[in-house]
Design a binder for these strands. Sequence first.
RNA 1: GGCGCGGUAGCCAAGUGGUAAGGCCGAGCUCUGCAAAAGCUCUAUGCGCCGGUUCAAUUCCGGCCCGCGCCUCCA
Length: 454
Amino acid sequence: MALKLYDSLTRSLKELTPSHADGVFRFYNCGPTVYASAHIGNFRTFIVNDVIRRLLELEFGTVKIKHVRNLTDVDDKTIKRSREEGRSLADVTKQWTEKFWSDCKVLNCLDPHEQPTATGHIKEQVNMIEVLMEKGNAYRGADGSVYFKIDSFPGYGALSRIKERELKITDDAADSDHKDSVSDFALWKAYKPAEDGDVKWPSPQGDGEGRPGWHIECSAMIKKHLGDTIDLHTGGVDLLFPHHENEIAQSQCCNGTSMANHWYHGEHLLVNGKKMSKSDGTFYTVDDIIAKGYSAAALRYALLVGHPRKQLNFTLDSLHAAEKAIKTLRNYRAALPAIGGNPEAFAEAFKALDDDLNTPGALGAIFTIINRGNEGVDQTAFDRVIFAFGLDLSETAAPEVSIPDDITALAEKRWAAKQSKDWAAADALRAELTEAGWSMLDRKESYSLEPLKK
RNA sequence: GGCGCGGUAGCCAAGUGGUAAGGCCGAGCUCUGCAAAAGCUCUAUGCGCCGGUUCAAUUCCGGCCCGCGCCUCCA
């Protein structure tokens, strides 16, 4: 079985294969800008990429894949945030990087092999810009910034099919004065004391100070950590243009070779039918979901119920459905023998995953098998497909809930009433618990309490 | 305006030129003092609308309506 993914450049399904002689698959995934908590729309993309990573590991072997995901820790937003809070840029980005990592861990994402930062690769970026300047692909504007000259790269627009960016009068009009063409984009932004504070580095060719533009960091880090040509480059659809288009221009003009053999873009998660937006406040964070009492596994599941290349409208109902589905998977596994089943029991599910990451199709296949019973299925085969999805089915993965003392007291009273067969009292106490938002589950020798979902 | 994507049961969501996977909800049943948990069973004559091609279209083609995304340093 081989994983086939849609390639945004050729607009066709292509098999993923390592192109280098060492057989190591080189995979780069555009990461987050660390200035605030990432929302679950961002995580949809990272989780989809995590599934790709897992499938590649299953196909090529754990050591035959190198996965790199960057952290954008210097840009307008990070600088703005640090100045608003009167903290250093490093302090702010460290906080949000750690938050991002802990969310990733909660969501059971495998760590990329490298997580390079933009500020950790200033030298590499400056070097690359200098090469572009020497080759005539970049020039210094009157403001001291360095711009990429789009006219110098005939291949520009191949990925997004945009010949040239439309000439628009925007707030950036001021910058346009310094550029040869409005379409040109910044490789290096000249230092602006009023906006940049102490965030600055020596500019390319030692001419003044400034900071890197957004796009160049990926080109530089890819070159350093994965080489001139990689096997797969991914991100959200919004990165198609201009980010990835610009990366291609920079890298290919600098290196003279194709940057990536395969481009894959995940679609957006919607809320109320609209894109999640930090500025509109229409988004959920991982913490928000956990606080509502849902498990991280359910969140992960809910983000995978839609085809990754289709917009998915996120609702709390979908989380509820996911939570139930997770329970079914957990119970099914518990009834399975460890070994002895057909290793290919979940072939249909893998077939769907290999066919352009059809996660809903694969989930459907899994439940179809579950509905047929346990015959011929063992935990080994089941765990393999669950690994691909990255779902942590262990009970300990369920969120820890603290039970208030008064709830415990009510439960104890009801349990005592039940033991003495005082059904009326027991029922009244159950009603009180329900009213307080708790569900009491009786067992033979004991009981447990679960909060009703908010 | 340019480029791209989508409209399938109450909700979510696969899919195929030959007659609609799966999850949730709901209903029934087993179990059970009650409730739950667990398990079993059932639930779209129809896939936005109108034409066309075809023996056959939800699936191909054309038109239309509706929704969404990108074209702003947003995953």
